[in-house]
Design a binder for these strands. Sequence first.
DNA 1: CCATTTGCGGTTCTGGAAGTAACGTAACAG
DNA 2: CTGTTACGTTACTTCCAGAACCGCAAATGG
Lengths: 207, 207
Amino acid sequence: MSESVLAPRRPGGRGSDRGRPRDPDMDQAILRATIELLSEVGYVQVTVAEVARRARVSKPAIYRRWSQKSQLVVEAMVTQMRPGKDNDSGSAAGDLLALTEQLINTLTRTPLGRVLPGLVAEMAADPVLATSYRDLIIKPNQRHWRAALDRGIARGELSEQTDIDFVLNTLVGPLYFCLLITGEPIDAGYAQAAVDLVLARYGTPRG
Amino acid sequence: MSESVLAPRRPGGRGSDRGRPRDPDMDQAILRATIELLSEVGYVQVTVAEVARRARVSKPAIYRRWSQKSQLVVEAMVTQMRPGKDNDSGSAAGDLLALTEQLINTLTRTPLGRVLPGLVAEMAADPVLATSYRDLIIKPNQRHWRAALDRGIARGELSEQTDIDFVLNTLVGPLYFCLLITGEPIDAGYAQAAVDLVLARYGTPRG
DNA sequence: CCATTTGCGGTTCTGGAAGTAACGTAACAG
DNA sequence: CTGTTACGTTACTTCCAGAACCGCAAATGG
């Protein structure tokens, strides 16, 4: 499944397997060049022509694989996603702290931070892209958060009335707010403070 | 001061007062047309040519007043900002609840929600614009939140260790996260839940 | 081994939007 | 009246996303 997403044969989806096959090296070269450019200049300044130049490939060769610049970028980001070790530290507090700090790291130390602002604009105008981004990047990441919260509830560290989606938004939202709107750096103590906040409300005595 | 921001004579800032003066009706017509278009199609789809057409004005007349499309849009948004009644409801909980619900309203019922995604992208690429937006829209709005929190601390409803910036990000961040990233509608109970969360951590017994 | 089909890949083109330039004319200041 | 600046019109430049077009490479069928 992931193969068809990474380099769909025919943008439309369906396509025969006859005729000259695509050069798989090109897929890699294009994605590599995209990531490289993204980390240098950010989404808006990335042009497909420049990606083509760096990958030593022609522009149509790119458009044959991805229907839009934005789709190319999303898929390039996906290749950068770590499998995401589902570390169970033993406590909900520990898990959430680790996840929050990992997200801070992703947003500030990987190209994702430079990609997001431009991608947000495209997503607002292109529902298909928005769905891709959410399904391929946001949701897979949130799986770990949900798992940590579920475990916390099962262990009795967190109240059974814990609103998981709400907690998730609370931990994650402020990070995006700083990154996209205020531009202020994320406070070093943020992760701890945010977890404390959640525990003060949904933690149980025995937690 | 606000006058010079709304329709600066000469994009550069300085400018003489000799010669034919600008038609002030034009400023209004342009801003009105901009807001109208923004609320219909969102930031990216707004073209300066279309603004000019609707305002019955020429394109150079617009560029004489604002150096970029993005600056025009920011100033148009500023004209839409309500003075912002600093309602003191008597309790920090009440104040924060009202402010949160007012922000939800602004983000979902005014053009701001349609403008933000595109503006976020421009801000990431244009530091001058980013500063304008933060100074003219974000900061003025946050003044009320800070005042409410200060009063809450002064009254003893909130702990003196309350981290004001952190609380502010916590209440506000998830709203932007939903609007810009997940696209999910904001839960009807969000404001109350968020305020409860903050009070569980920073509220004092007597609050 | 050759002919045919399929579609890859490169060169070139189109379309749209931001922003600029040039010019004739209109309106204000001194 | 003179200088200066605004305004409209028209045309232009630049940039980039994306589409046409065409020659040729690669797999298949005989």
